[in-house]
Amino acid sequence: MATGAEVDLRTRLQNWLPKLVLSPSLAMIFVFVYGFILFTVYVSFTDSRILPFVDKNGQTTYELIGFSNYEKLFSLSHWDISVMNMAIYAGLYIVICTFIGLLLAILLDQKIRGEGFIRPIFLYPMALSFIVTGTAWKWMLDPAIGFENIVQGWGWTTFTFDWIKNRDFAIYTVILAAVWQSSGFTMAMFLAGLRGIDTEILKAAQMDGASNWNLYRRIIIPQLRPAFLSAFVILAHLAIKTFDLVIAMTGGGPGRATELPATFMYSYTFSRNQMGIGAASAVIMLMTIAAIMIPYLYSELRERKS
């Protein structure tokens, strides 16, 4: 009898063990991700300015103020500029990365000699920190020592290239560095897509005398739809998260010319002591990313099931 009970206990333990093993990770995710999200949402409805939330006497340092932070946020020109910059930045970043990525993938797919040598060169920027990338581009674009100075040294003394110091153009220099960093990665996504295309259809079309141009336009590129979708989702979410690159290159300046929502959130929360507004801006960022990621992840997980 005793052994029977023992076996019973063991099987019960074995049944519980998988869930037990999973539970610490789940607990961490629930507390540090979802719990924290709720917490930040809560903070966004308060007039909190700085940490901690409770002072030495056990008094809370904040009051609930409803949607005031959101109203204030949307009336701030600083936030307006950040959002506008994000629209320019994300739009161009996604379009240019997709274009360069697709172009390079198609070119690399032409049975290129030395592909194994070229591909890593296109991709290595992805392994670097944005701070490193930002530092390199910051000084290369700096009028005093970078391209402007070099071209002037060649004899073209009136040449100017001061975009990084120019309010109207600084955001484009950030786009340049960001494209440099992630276009190779986009190339890899498209290349994987190209390598997965059925060559039988291509052969048939070639037999019918289709030109290369038509082959790509009519048959190959339409088949890359999943790769386009992945590239869009990944690039969009990278764009919204962009923070380090701006800090390293321009610090948000000149003026506010390169402020993005992420830098806005950081400065309102940690240096301007306007934590409630910082929290509200973080909530807006999360909602934007969720609007892109949730449908994507949902469809990915559903596909795998079927």
Partner: peptide, 15 residues
């Protein structure tokens, strides 16, 4: 768990 990979980390900075 997967969605947690993609959140903008600004949303967890304060807590």
């Amino acid at each position: 768990m997967l969605f947690a990979c993609f959140i903008p980390f600004q949303i967890v900075l304060i807590p």
